[in-house]
Nucleic acid binder design. Structure first.
Lengths: 221, 221
DNA sequence: GTCTATAGACGGATAGAC
DNA sequence: GTCTATCCGTCTATAGAC
């Protein structure tokens, strides 16, 4: 998996990452102590610092491990579609699916931890912690730029700034779709969580596309 | 303001709440210590426990102080519209504006702290902390129920469960509109934050309405 | 690589004088 | 109501034996 020259025991390292992922998702970064992580992973406390150095670096690695794959997968789908289209603009629905659908399909993988990770990611989007922010921005930069310009070619009548905003709104809707506070409705006798996960993707997709293609707000002020 | 029998100095109490609001927004609950709060508020450390008891109760009061007003304002607008309509269903756009527009107008109040609070709220939506969750659910219950049934009457051809989901997605988009990770695009030479705040409301509104009225996902499986 | 033990700072909460 | 001083627990990180 990794080509570090120092071939560490993959077991300990991965168990730490898996435990940290779950606990960060459930309790946040500050709400999760090294001791909680090591006791869940059943490794020694000092092992974390041995393998990752500091808590901050551990957090980074929790993200990097999955985010690299996710964004590579997104770009790969986009590459493929653009190659097939041969210069013609793509349909917005296919671009949206390549970005948000890929993430949602990762979130559907409950056993492999994809679901946990996407919950964590959704939560982290609104965490203004400085260093996490910086790190995510770097990890996302390439991928986001590719998708924004694909959308701009697909919707030439829409200003780039408008597309940026709508991409932002779509990200928020997706974050909530995965990790949002479903419990808000429980008191109304309703629930959003005990639903067939298979239907989430089409539900979200039609919402996102409706929003993306909505009439533009009133003329330039 | 408050009719507690113990008439405490309003100054100290409010200064603590104001300081806590900002710091919770910037650093989260676990990332904010009592000492950070009291030193920002320029009050004594023991004053927090004197006025609020525990940190948890302080957190609750930070939310309760503004959320009660916000949700009352939302319901008041809805009441007014329903009274004028005299039994006829309302336009979805007016319902959406009553709920999300009211929040966004609160978020436009930067000096009075409304902006800070809405950022905090957006962040807290994805904070799975058990007791905050419970508290928010109770605070929201009445208001959300009112708006969901108003939407259901306005869109009788849409299943209630579908409306619930779309309300959820809309909430996510709004949370990001206010407090989301705008910095994700900065590396692409773009920005979503240095924009005219006056234009946010119409931008978000057309996106939300586009999503709400989007064609329903494929037939029942 | 893995362990024990501990340093050293900081957390929430409180006792008790004024 | 406001203050100082302090209890006591937990935190991250590291030193050093094995």
């Amino acid at each position: 998996m990794r080509d570090d020259s120092a071939k560490t025991s993959p077991d300990t390292r991965s168990r730490i990452l898996d435990a940290a992922e779950v606990l960060f998702m459930e309790n946040g970064f500050d709400g999760t102590s090294m001791r909680m992580i090591t006791s869940r992973a059943e490794v020694n406390l000092a092992a974390v610092n041995y393998h990752f150095g500091t808590k901050e670096l551990l957090i980074q690695e929790v993200f990097r491990r999955r985010l690299t794959d996710l964004n590579n997968a997104r770009v790969a789908v986009l590459d493929q579609m653009e190659a097939e289209a041969g210069g013609a603009p793509l349909k917005p629905s296919r671009i949206v699916d390549a970005f948000f659908g890929t993430a949602l399909r990762m979130a559907a993988d409950v056993d492999g931890g994809g679901h946990t990770f996407m919950c964590l990611l959704g939560r982290t989007y609104t965490e203004p912690n400085e260093f996490v922010r910086k790190f995510l921005a770097e990890e996302y930069a390439e991928c986001v730029e590719r998708f924004l310009s694909a959308l701009y070619r697909a919707l030439p009548e829409v200003e780039l700034k408008e597309i940026l905003w709508r991409f932002h709104f779509m990200t928020g809707a997706m974050a909530f779709a995965i990790s949002g506070l479903g419990g808000l409705y429980e008191l109304a006798g309703l629930s959003v969580t005990d639903d067939d996960p298979q239907r989430l993707l089409p539900r979200l997709m039609s919402f996102l596309l409706g929003g993306l293609r909505a009439p533009l707000p009133g003329a330039n002020a």
